[in-house]
Design a protein around this nucleic acid. Structure first.
Lengths: 121, 121
DNA sequence: ATTGACCTTCACATCTATGTGAAGGTTCGA
DNA sequence: TCGAACCTTCACATAGATGTGAAGGTCAAT
């Protein structure tokens, strides 16, 4: 599919789909006329990228961990460098921290909302 | 305490402490000479702000929800506007989504790491 | 053949969180 | 009284994710 359809199906602006390509997150084929040609699986792929971006990961990191989240995973096992592993562990920890922060603060918000509702009841 | 001490104790650059003030997240007193004078509780406050920023919330939103996360909460109950409540609910949902994304992807990273370790065992 | 809806690249603009430095005031100890 | 180590404001710079528009190519339908 071309960029317009992918954009519509994912809700991600064309501009950003091109940006993600520039950042190496997606590598669509090209039609003879130069148009980008996206594989069906890019729908999920883009959603995942958005999820990771929304989760606060920069494209630089997403580019690194994205291949690892793919299946079949065994393919990528062989060429994993120690730096790569270190990056992954670091990011895993950062993600854990983020989850922690988010959870705590979201719960606080929930509590507050509950309290407000209680009061006006 | 002055800005230098708070900076050291929180690990947050002075520049950012001033920025947070500019954004209305903190409102330190001023000494007669114009120096910022931070209350002891700003240590926790700043840590919380950093947590929220790291969690992906913009200062604009943090400014709004910060007072709600404070205790005693009853104080703030009275002057809560419907827009405020809407914002809070929206942010709560966004946070929940983020937590979800983060959790899923972190688990994927964990699985990958486990698989790699398994293989090299 | 022209129009309209796609697509391309290029490039400049914006917003947020930051870095960095200039120019200058305050405080304190040697 | 001098210097070091603070502090102030102002202001310009950067980086990442995005908006936006120009200038132009492609293609299908009329």
């Amino acid at each position: 599919m071309r960029i317009g359809e992918l954009s519509e199906r994912t809700g991600v602006p064309r501009r950003l789909l091109r940006y993600y390509e520039e950042q190496g997150l997606v590598v669509p084929d090209r039609l003879p006329n130069g148009y980008r040609d996206y594989d069906e699986r890019y729908v999920d792929r883009v959603a995942q990228i958005r999820g990771l971006l929304d989760a606060g990961l920069p494209t630089r990191i997403i580019k690194q961990i994205l291949p690892c989240l793919d299946k079949p995973r065994v393919i990528h096992m062989s060429d994993v460098t120690p730096e790569m592993l270190a990056t992954l562990e670091r990011e895993r920890d950062r993600m854990t921290e983020r989850i922690d922060h988010l959870t705590r603060n979201r719960n606080a918000v929930c509590e507050y909302l509950a309290a407000v509702r209680e009061e006006s009841a």
